[in-house]
């Protein structure tokens, strides 16, 4: 697999910015993922070196947390809630529909790189179930129809 290009200087700057905070690793990983959309596996030696940790420790932290990803996401990430309140309001049908519509499974990205799909366990929007979040925008009472509308509007916006 070819490695994706990323800006080493920028990542180094992010690390330098936060490295002296107590418990700096999570803020640094967030900083990198905010900037690049993911935490490149080949940035691990850099992070480990600056924080005086082993590469295994850094890798262990990245892989422990569902939110951190090691591959670039699509342009937009759709988080679909799988938790009980959403299930009570039909999220399973929405899940099936979303996968079919995007033609991908969870943790995958569409062929055109437009969308990634991730499961999430509660968005705190339970009073408006079922819910999805796209990047940082939450949508409530989502039906298959409104899901399509949201996706289509985004595709139009992207063109």
């Amino acid at each position: 697999m070819t490695e994706h290009e990323w800006d080493r200087e920028h990542v180094q700057e992010i690390i330098r910015c936060d490295k002296d905070k107590p418990g700096a690793l999570l803020p640094i990983l967030h900083g990198i993922q905010d900037a690049l959309g993911y935490v490149p596996p080949d940035s691990i030696p850099l992070i480990a070196g600056e924080l005086n940790l082993s590469r295994a420790e850094v890798h262990g932290v990245i892989s422990f947390y569902h939110y951190f990803r090691s591959t670039p996401p699509g342009k937009r990430t759709i988080y679909l809630c799988r938790a009980e309140s959403c299930q009570a309001m039909g999220s399973e049908a929405l899940e099936t529909h979303a996968k079919q519509r995007l033609n991908i499974d969870y943790h995958e990205t569409t062929g055109d790189g437009a969308f990634s799909l991730e499961p999430v366990y509660c968005l705190g929007n339970c009073a408006c179930s079922p819910s999805i979040m796209i990047d940082k925008d939450v949508y409530g009472r989502v039906t298959s129809e409104t899901f399509d509308e949201i996706i289509e509007n985004m595709q139009v916006d992207a063109q």
Binding site: A83, S85, C86, Y121, C122, G124, N125, C126, A127
Partner: peptide, 9 residues
Amino acid sequence: EGDSGTFSD
């Protein structure tokens, strides 16, 4: 606040 069905926090 990870519990499904909770949002008071």
